[in-house]
Amino acid sequence: MRYAILLMGSPYSDQASHSALRFARALLARGHRLEAVFFYHDGVYNAARLSAPPQDEPHLADGWVALHEEQGVALQVCIAAALRRGLMDEREAARHGKAGHSVEAPFELTGVGQLVDLSQRCDRLVTFGP
């Protein structure tokens, strides 16, 4: 089946991100396809380029990137939810006159329309939230 994940929990604050990543791994291991992870609400913090968890804890951002590199999973971040929370790529940083950027590829800033599109073309959209 074709899956998509909607992730709305903040990394390390809630279980949601850990569970979503493990669910993603489990469904790929069972031969399903994961089209995309859509990061919304506090889930957008998963895309923070500068996250630096202790070495003996799972690195969630690296986990998402690995999913993209190994399986081509799209990592879509809601731009409206991200900008409010200080998460932006180089282009948005330039547009808003900010000195640095906090999101980089393979995470992509996109709109809620992408979430609606995923819900229409995937067999299952599974939500993980706090």
Binding site: H41, L115, S119
Partner: peptide
């Protein structure tokens, strides 16, 4: 919290897409 606003945003966008 922002839950209600962000939930409504999804509803509006979905409706704008013809859902």
């Amino acid at each position: 919290s922002s839950w209600l606003r962000e939930g409504l945003d999804v509803a509006l966008v979905a409706a704008a897409f013809g859902t």
